[in-house]
Design a binder for these strands. Structure first.
Length: 276
DNA sequence: ATGGGTACCTGTCTGC
DNA sequence: TGCAGACAGGTACCCA
């Protein structure tokens, strides 16, 4: 489910309210992707620092006497969402993690359990480091330029859409936004990444940034169950030009949009507007 | 190193 | 109505 815009919208929706809150209890439900890696009770009495995002991961620093004392790395997987509320009510079957604090409870709901909550001594240590190392540039990092994207794509021979999804060149564009950005840049998703010219890489880098920024401004995409930590739905999905629209006439040229499968994932594109 | 495929898990929708 | 099968926003890991 959640790509960069959804994760960032989620972060923004609870970051300020939880900042400075004191952990009073931790509840762990069904196992997620990895074990938590710490005795839950040992987190009690720590203070939540400023929540950060890296790619589609969230990092919740936990402080002890004002000093950073580890933190929780969270991932929403395909179906996860976080809610922050003063009185969350009883945990349902899909509520797998509660961080109960003096200001309210941060609750992870994740029906498919592809998500994760993992404790690490620091962001650059242990499990967090293992998961975060090797991630590509942030799309809004000034270092993410057309030149950088061009050089990175030159080193690979996979289809450009798969290169974008792999997350080691640029993070944050998942299946929806990779499809949308390739449409905006006029590039066929099947094009071999090393055949993308410099000008097209420039356009693609700009399209990735623009697509993610626009989605962010609209609160992300809610296809079925995404909500931010206030329970708000995203509004980007109504603006999708290709995603989920197989057979629908392209709104730029009228050609029916196509659906193909790449790397076991659906890809949507316009065979006329998007060229190899 | 790269690329391709599998695995994880559950809910929803489609077609017979 | 019931049921099998396809499909879903992600990514670590195994193997060639």
């Amino acid at each position: 489910m959640p790509e960069l815009p959804e994760v960032e919208v989620t972060r923004q929706s609870f970051c300020e309210r939880i900042h400075g809150a004191r952990v009073t209890a931790v509840r762990v439900g069904k196992p997620l992707r990895w074990p938590l890696g710490v005795v839950p009770d040992s987190l009690v009495a720590r203070t939540v620092g400023e929540v950060a995002r890296r790619g589609k991961y969230l990092w919740l620093p936990l402080e002890d006497d004002g000093r950073e004392a580890g933190g929780l790395l969270m991932h929403l997987g395909m179906s996860g969402s976080l809610a922050f509320s003063p009185a969350p009510g009883d945990a349902g079957v899909h509520d797998h993690f509660d961080l109960v604090t003096s200001r309210g409870t941060l609750r992870l709901t994740d029906p498919r359990r592809f998500g994760a909550v993992v404790w690490s001594a620091s962001r650059s240590d242990g499990m967090a480091a293992k998961l975060l190392n090797g991630l590509g540039l942030e799309p809004f990092d000034p270092a993410f330029t057309g030149a950088h994207l061009h050089a990175a794509l030159k080193r690979r021979r996979v289809a450009v859409k798969l290169a974008l999804l792999s997350g080691d060149i640029v993070v944050g564009a998942g299946n929806i936004y990779a499809c949308e950005a390739l449409f905006a840049a006029g590039i066929d998703p099947r094009t071999r990444s090393d055949r993308i010219s410099r000008p097209r890489a420039e356009r693609l880098a700009a399209a990735i940034r623009d697509t993610l920024a626009r989605a962010l401004a609209l609160g992300g995409s809610t296809l079925r169950d995404f909500r931010d930590a206030h329970g708000m739905e995203g509004r980007f999905q109504a603006q999708a030009r290709v995603y989920g629209r197989a057979g629908v006439p392209c709104d730029a040229c009228g050609t029916p949009l196509r659906r193909i499968v790449q790397g076991q994932r659906a890809t949507f594109f316009c065979p006329t507007c998007q060229r190899r």
